[in-house]
Amino acid sequence: MSIVTSRRFWLVVAAIVIGLLPAIFTDSYWRTNLIVCAINVLLAIGLDFVLGYAGQLNLGQSAFYGIGAYASTLLITQVGVPFWVAFVAGVLLAGVAGVFLSVFAVRLRGHYLAIASLGFAVITYQVLLNWISLTQGPLGIYGIAPPPPFAIPGLPPIEFSNLASLFYLTAGFAFLVYLLLDQLVRSPVGETLTAIREDEVSAASLGVNGQKWKVFAFAVSSAVAGAGGCFYASFVGTLVPDAFFITESFSILAMVIVGGMGTLIGPVLGAILLTVLPELLRGIGDLRLIVYGVSVTLVVLFMPGGLVQAARLVAARVRRPAKVGRDP
């Protein structure tokens, strides 16, 4: 294995890039976008775990994202628990909501699960909108504090009121989750989930309890979305239900599809591209979602493996005489 095809090498490169980004982009506009990117990466790899690996279309990501955001924020503002406790609670609650939903739906074919999860997203949105005594409804919750300073003995405390350190926090967390999921999918868990995706009856004939594993994949996917929600709330400082409308689920889906489902690096690339591209094309304004829609449709029709498949095709063409490798 040469150095450029080794996984460690690329992970180190990614860590260095994350470290350098705030130094390259010093204005708050781009730093804000970087944080949005990191959150979207988190949401996209979470969805891909359940969609790309276990083959279950979860259209409820917007709901789990919202549950994480509202639960952690309300725990902080109403109950007064410390940020990191609220964070853990938000993640767990989103995971539990995912389990709740999947328990309803695991006995069903993929389509039913997709619709049930969409229904769940609609319910959650309506609850956020209508439970005014708790969520303030459409008025929203304002003035949410950033995470508290993080003290490492012997160093000055890290303040999260500045965008660079907030970026390090979210991107670092997304990087950690990536590593964790990557390790999981490279273990027999990955084999089991793909077996379920490919053919559940066949997987059962090998002893795989499809229901149990689907619940597991749902739990992981929604917990990751919940973490994204917690970061979102503390970064934006404002929560309104519209941020968690079902179109958010579709945007996350678009990132996974365009990047390439069934790989983890694909959704990362997709999330970055679909977050940054519309910013670069700001002139087109309202066209952002049209771009999402068109790209999802075209990718499914012509390049179902997304950017990753495209990259592999290009790489194979470039070094045709050499042996064509698999994953980086």
Binding site: L51, L57, H111, D286, I290, G293, V296, T297, V300, L301
Partner: peptide
């Protein structure tokens, strides 16, 4: 893949809605 057509039509739906919006 039974999910691909569903996903493609989600794309069409986003496209149609936002084209009408424009």
């Amino acid at each position: 893949n039974e999910l691909l057509p569903l996903i493609a039509t989600i794309g069409v739906s986003i496209m149609l809605q936002n084209a009408m919006l424009v």
